[in-house]
Design a protein around this nucleic acid. Structure first.
Length: 1045
RNA sequence: GCGGGUGUGGCGGAAUUGGUAGACGCGCUAGACUUAGGAUCUAGUUUCUCACGAAGUAAGGGUUCGAGUCCCUUCAUCCGCACCA
């Protein structure tokens, strides 16, 4: 009939493509704006309605900015490396590039249907050599750099070598794996291999042994954020801790800058907090303890140096290198047993036993550097090797874990901090430790009386004076493991000479991924690349067989969009000077500790080496919420329960004149119901079950003189469905003393039965099962569709309820859950585009609620937005669907409606509150429809304003309005406040703060005039009567409040 | 345990930042038009009350002429992190 979205959308998508409407280039006459979506990994499943949510939001923002005169960079591409395609390759032999290409095409097809304004000429894919050349290049720069702590900046490794040649490590202040000490002469005396080993200690990309998350099921290591609950996030295989030689990125060198930088970006507090937490900066002290009878220093890290007087024992991580050295012969067996036990425990088991206290005594003692006290040294797995020094001084009085440990092993507890104004008490009486971070020191010599914060500083001072400790900052952040034992990733431009890794020359880039015969690890456990033929350099040196992890390619992709076809450099100076960094980044918060931290590191490094002009990649970030599914349920009847329920309802409360009881037991026999008065036993069960017990039970009943009735469930069901009362009649007959056969065989009941949601006591005899939401409308199930859905449901039976018109209906229950295939609640955007059009889908996704919140998808709700779009269309058309727009000047109410909307839209888009803008559109169109407005002066700006949300219909109407250029290049209308002004205001009049009536008054009236007018109003009399007017509050154009009393 | 978010009709959610609570949409109710309605249009729809009116933004308290909004206490719920010394 009217608005033909299928044709319109196809036509304009074609037009945009043919005319490259969304292609952008550097244009110094306009300010730039960079809007970016998080890099998608194209999975095989395609998109559901939750995925495009962020893309639609960014698209609207990009289009809006463009209408506002900005040159907007809005690109899209693919994070193409990923485990699923590789797993599929291992299983089927299909090259991951093939799978990936297929998935990308599907993604693209779905995205095109929604009408996004991406500049597809800038598309990048991480798996293409032209792209990963620069991933490899960046790796080489990292390999050839070290981090200078003094200047807080990455520097070329050549500078470090020059320094070593001049004065060795003297006065060196750089990021390092472990402190080394050598002179210039010693450095020069080293062999090349030794020098290379030393340099590994400083490179920003380096190779070292590391405890990794090894996943045997996948044959690779995983990053921390790829592991959850000791299982791999993808695939759910067990993960174990293992020490392996791995490439790593020295991201810890940037810990402080990563923390500082958070202050300069406009991100949600929660994501910033997540990152702060992940970086985990804690300031404290390193303290050296001597070991009794040995010349060994044991270094610990503590944030509570003030509690040094209260330390009563020490604990090492079981893997600590000093353990075997200090363990006494008597304790060796126990210690070794403990180490084996903890080592063999998987990560999963270890986490499950978090609260279990365990440990072993080494027999050695540490000496408190301040008090000289002897402290027994234990090992326990509550101390982690990876944090601090892997050793702690335990202060049981003021740390809950130490407290639990001391209690368990009967170690002394000394209180050294008390709550101000209280007296110290005997820790033996405590139920938990006193962990308070504000308090006053006691039992602590020179610290007595000091508050905690001052005591910490005072103690550090003392430690430094005595040369037994220093103030120190510790980070929880670990260096990022950068190698994967996988095929589908970027090869490292690294070869091995004499067992030592060397960087390839940049001229050899890109180092392309070779073809291999099979995608799994070799029989000897080497990575798949070891299968590649001739995987050696021209000189014959073997090339690295690990590949880079997923985050390698996604850490700097936003740079490449700025200059995607440059084969001379990563991106040009000119491009970066113009586009700079991302102004608005939209994506999920789940990347907080992965992608978003690696990208920041990547960017800071490129900033250090002079490539990037900004040191933060994403200025403003919005994290869209999840769209949840709304699942529907049918209630599957548990037949036995249902029948028991039905019969019980029939006989309970003396309904048939005699009393029955439930669950009668005699020995091992159990009957559903029993009537002592008449000696009637009733059992309801499946036919088969009754057959088995029929004989012995009849004998039993006879022996006791009882009458027995065995009811097959089919009988009860028949009564239900046919409205007969066969079962009831039998019971009545029994009560009346008639003889009724105990058991009549019939056709056994087969098939499933379902009960409508609102039937009484439904929950007593049914369990919900998911049904496909496409078979449900307004919670009513399409019973026929349901029967056809699955083979086992063909002869399903239903217990219906009546709707208001007395028809039988089957009502489903519902629940909000994650959208997933297995819950049959997935909404596919393609279906919706087909049914309502992309414009309606875009509007509805935005209308659903605030972008950042998760919200359920309401299948019906889209109808409302669809109605709006058609109403919008009708503003431009007459009853015969002929385009009909008038050139008459607009009236004041029409202009007011328009300008209210301009203001709303500007405010709404800037504050990412798209849902309110859609509402405002609806209000405006409702008003204009009421005014029967079809004036160009109103409709033309309105079309421009709608175009970010509904670009297709806007483009169509824009051309119908007589334009021959795209609406994308139009200008956003300018807000004119005077158009929304009125000369009177409908004041709400309140008495004591309660609104009583409205009163239309001129805005020019002053307070006194308003007061007079209001008090003179007839409605006021009732409220003033018998009371005194204490005060009148008048806020112009807001409210009048009269205080009476 | 720690950190962050969120609590408003049957539902999704508004409320110009301290000024008419429930905009807009779904659903629901009634009516119109229709052979029909899962189309369209009109009216109504926070709760209680016949009504006058009263109550009302998770609960309780406070500040204020006025509180969904600010402050304090409690509860619920979701999401992170979790032996981090």
């Amino acid at each position: 009939m009217d608005y033909n979205f299928i044709e319109i959308e196809k036509k304009w998508q074609q037009y945009w493509r043919d005319n490259k409407i969304y292609k952008v280039d550097i244009d110094h006459s306009k300010p730039k704006f960079y809007v970016l979506d998080m890099f998608p990994y194209p999975s095989g499943a395609g998109l559901h309605v939750g995925h495009p949510l962020g893309y639609i939001a960014s698209d609207i923002y990009a289009r809006y900015k463009r209408l506002k005169g900005f040159n907007v960079l809005h690109p899209m591409g693919y994070d193409a490396y990923g485990l699923p395609a590789e797993q599929y390759a291992i299983q089927t032999g299909t090259h991951p590039a093939v799978t990936t290409e297929k998935n990308i095409n599907r993604y693209r097809e779905q995205m095109d249907k929604i009408g996004f304004c991406y500049d597809w000429d800038r598309e990048v894919r991480t798996c293409e050599p032209g792209y990963y050349k620069w991933t490899q290049w960046t790796f080489l720069q990292l390999f050839n750099s070290f981090y200078c702590n003094g200047c807080q900046k990455a520097q070329p490794i050549s500078k470090l070598i020059a320094r070593f040649e001049e004065k060795g490590t003297e006065g060196l202040n750089v990021a390092e794996s472990k402190p080394l000490s050598f002179t210039a002469a010693e450095w020069k005396a080293m062999s090349e291999k030794e020098q290379q080993e030393v340099l590994m200690n400083y490179r920003l990309a380096y190779q070292a042994e590391a405890m990794v998350n090894w996943c045997p099921g996948l044959g690779t290591v995983l990053a921390n954020d790829e592991v959850a609950d000791g299982l791999s996030v993808r695939g759910g295989f067990p993960v174990e801790r293992k020490s392996m030689k791995q490439w790593q990125l020295r991201i810890t060198a940037y810990a402080d800058r990563l923390l500082q930088g958070l202050e300069t970006v406009d991100w949600s507090e929660s994501v910033k907090d997540l990152q702060r937490n992940w970086i985990g900066k804690s300031m404290g002290a390193s303290v050296i303890f001597k070991i009794e009878g040995k010349d060994i220093d044991l270094e610990v890290f503590t944030t509570r140096a003030d509690t040094l007087f209260g330390t009563t024992f020490m604990v090492l991580a079981p893997e600590h290198e000093l353990v075997s050295e200090i363990t006494t012969p008597e304790q060796r067996a126990e210690v070794e047993e403990y180490i084996t036990r903890t080592k063999n425990r998987s990560e999963r088991e270890r986490m499950a036993e978090v609260r279990k206290v365990s440990g072993a005594f080494t027999g050695a003692y540490g000496i408190n550097p301040i008090t000289g006290a002897k402290l027994p040294i234990w090992i326990a797995d509550y101390v982690l090797m990876g944090y601090g020094t892997g050793a702690i001084m335990a202060v049981p009085a003021h740390d809950s874990r130490d407290f639990a440990f001391a209690r368990h092993f009967n170690l002394p507890i000394i209180q050294v901090v008390k709550q101000p104004g209280t007296e110290p008490s005997d820790p033996a009486t405590w139920e938990e430790s006193f962990d308070a971070k504000d308090g006053e020191l006691v039992n602590s010599g020179f610290l007595n009386g000091l508050p905690v914060k001052k005591a910490i500083l005072r103690m550090i001072e003392e430690l430094e004076k005595l040369g037994v400790g220093t103030g120190k900052t510790n980070y929880r952040l670990r260096d990022a493991i950068f190698s994967r034992q996988r095929y589908w990733g970027e090869p490292f431009p690294i070869y091995y000479k004499d067992g030592m890794p060397y960087a390839m020359d940049e001229s050899k880039l890109p180092l392309e991924l070779p073809a291999i015969s099979e995608y799994k690890p070799t029989e000897t456990g080497e990575p798949p690349l070891a299968r590649a033929k001739n995987w050696v350099t021209e000189e014959g040196y073997p090339i690295e067989t690990n590949t880079m992890p997923g985050f390698a390619g996604s850490s700097g992709y936003y740079f490449r969009y700025q200059d995607p076809h440059n084969d001379k450099e990563y991106f040009s100076r000119e491009a970066n000077d113009y586009w700079q960094n991302v102004d608005l980044y939209i994506g999920g918060a789940e990347h907080a500790t992965g992608h978003l931290i690696y990208s920041r590191f990547w960017c800071k490094f490129l900033y250090d080496i002079g490539l990037s002009c900004k040191d933060e990649p994403f200025q403003r970030m919005i994290n869209q919420g999840m769209i949840q599914g709304r699942s529907s349920f049918a209630y599957r009847v548990n037949m036995e329960k249902l029948c028991e329920y039905g019969v019980w309802n029939m006989i309970k409360d003396n309904k048939l004149g005699v009393k029955f009881e439930k669950d009668f037991k005699d020995g091992r026999r159990r009957f559903d119901f029993f009537c002592p008065e008449k000696g009637i036993l009733i059992e309801i069960n499946r036919m088969g079950n009754l057959e088995k017990v029929a004989e012995p039970w009849q004998e039993y009943a006879e022996s006791k003189g009882y009458k027995l009735l065995m009811v097959p469930i089919i009988d009860v069901v028949n009564d239900y469905e046919k409205g007969t009362n066969v079962v009831e009649q039998k019971i009545k007959d029994l009560i009346a003393g008639k003889d009724v056969p105990a058991f009549v065989e019939g056709t056994p009941f087969t098939g499933a039965m379902f009960v409508s949601k609102n039937l009484p006591d439904r929950e007593l005899f049914s369990d919900p099962i998911h049904v496909d939401i496409n078979m449900v409308r307004n919670d009513v199930l399409d019973v026929e569709a349901f029967r056809q859905w699955r083979d086992d449901l063909h002869d399903a039976r239903f217990i219906f309820e009546k709707d208001k018109d007395g028809n039988d209906v089957f009502v489903c229950g519902s629940e909000v859950e994650k959208m997933s295939k297995s819950k049959y609640n997935v909404q596919n955007p393609d279906d919706l585009v087909e049914k309502y059009g992309a414009d309606t889908l875009r509007l509805y996704e935005m209308f659903l609620g605030p972008l950042e919140q998760s919200k359920p998808w309401d299948t019906q709700g889209i109808e409302g937005t669809f109605r709006f779009v058609r109403k919008f269309w009708r503003l431009f058309h007459n009853e015969n669907n002929e385009f009909c727009v008038s050139d008459e000047p607009a009236t004041a109410p029409e202009l007011k409606s328009l300008h209210k909307l301009i203001k709303k839209e500007e405010d709404g888009i800037e504050s990412i509150s798209f849902n309110t803008v859609v509402s405002a559109f609806m209000i405006c169109v409702n008003e204009l429809a009421d005014l029967k407005c079809n004036k160009r002066e109103i409709l033309e700006p309105l079309t421009i304003m709608l175009s970010p949300y509904a670009p297709h219909i806007a483009e169509e109407l824009w051309h119908l309005l007589g334009h021959d250029t795209s609406v994308v290049n139009a200008s956003f209308p300018v807000y004119d406040e005077s158009k929304t002004m009125e000369n009177s205001f409908n004041y709400p009049v309140s008495f004591n703060g309660k609104m009583r009536f409205n009163m239309e008054l001129p805005v020019t009236m002053n307070a006194d005039e308003v007061q007079a007018a209001v008090l003179a109003a007839p409605e006021s009399a009732k409220w003033i009567e018998g009371k005194q007017i204490r005060k009148v509050i008048f806020v112009p154009k807001k409210i009048v409040n009269i205080v009476v009393g």
